[in-house]
């Protein structure tokens, strides 16, 4: 069967690290070797150098909060993103307009500003309106902010995913008598999700990094812990080296996982 070119498919990145591209060129990924050397050096300093003990002890306890906030916010963002993404291509024009407004609003405002706005303005307003206590913990507000922001980004990923499924798939299901909703649920969306798994993985990595912005709300994740430690001890080099080491280790491992997943999916 001839491959069919579909609009939107190009937007779905499957080789973010360029590993496949470099293999095709017959190049060895030297960058990966250098990166592992850097991480190795940072790991040695963090765990075995006595001058880094203070920084390590101050920052590591924040790791749990970083991971927890990212995981919870990502799961919520997936749900929001799927709903908004399907809303973007809904046949009902009111739904489509609302979903597009949400996505464009999120994309048009810097993330830092959105985090302030959601945590300090929107959440208190909503809590008031719904009659909840206004004293939600900062971590909860921060998670809501991250989820709302990434919900907008992930909506675009899901939209591209659905548009990457060939229109013949919907036609074939409808011609068998399946209602539109059933055809979407059993035929189009399973293929769309499969197509966007690597892109979602990349969004998870971005979110892990962007969780550092939650430090502005005073959430004691690793960036906030590093800031507190550095400004109270003036050990800026130690504090930020340990912090960089933690982010870099997590993102490199995740990136390799996503790249592996992308290659596996491509092979089918």
């Amino acid at each position: 069967m001839r491959p069919v070119q579909v609009p939107g498919a190009a937007a779905i990145e499957t080789d973010p690290l360029g590993i496949e591209a470099s293999q095709e060129r017959g190049e060895f990924p030297y960058w990966l070797v250098l990166m592992l050397l850097i991480i190795g050096l940072f790991a040695y300093l963090t765990f075995f150098d006595p001058t880094y003990v203070g920084a390590r002890r101050a920052i590591l306890p924040g790791l749990g909060i970083t991971i927890r906030a990212t995981l919870i916010a990502f799961v919520i963002a997936l749900v929001i993103g799927l709903i908004a993404g399907l809303g973007r291509i809904a046949r009902n024009s009111v739904v489509r307009t609302l979903a597009t407004t949400y996505v464009e609003f999120i994309r048009g405002v810097p993330m830092l500003v959105l985090i302030f706005a959601v945590a300090l303005v929107i959440v208190p307003l909503l809590a008031d309106a719904l009659g909840f206590s206004n004293r939600l913990p900062q971590e909860v507000r921060a998670i809501i902010a991250l989820a709302l922001i990434y919900g907008g980004y992930i909506a675009e990923v899901f939209r591209a995913g659905v548009e990457s499924v060939h229109p013949g798939q919907l036609e074939a299901s409808r011609s068998l008598g399946m209602p539109h909703s059933s055809a979407m649920r059993h035929v189009v969306i399973p293929q769309a999700v499969r197509n966007v798994l690597p892109a979602l993985g990349n969004d998870f990595i971005s979110m892990l990094k962007d969780s550092s912005l939650l430090s502005v709300l005073g959430v004691t994740e690793i960036t906030q812990q590093a800031r507190i430690f550095a400004s109270s001890t003036f050990q800026f080099r130690e504090g930020f080296l340990v912090l960089t080491f933690l982010y870099l280790t997590m993102t490199l491992v995740l990136s390799l996982l996503v790249a592996w997943l992308g290659r596996r999916l491509k092979r089918g």
Partner: peptide
């Protein structure tokens, strides 16, 4: 949908799932 379930359609590009 009730009409379509009584009709089969075969496409040029097969459109298998």
């Amino acid at each position: 949908n009730a009409v379509r379930k009584e009709m089969g359609m075969v496409f040029q590009q097969f459109n298998l799932f």
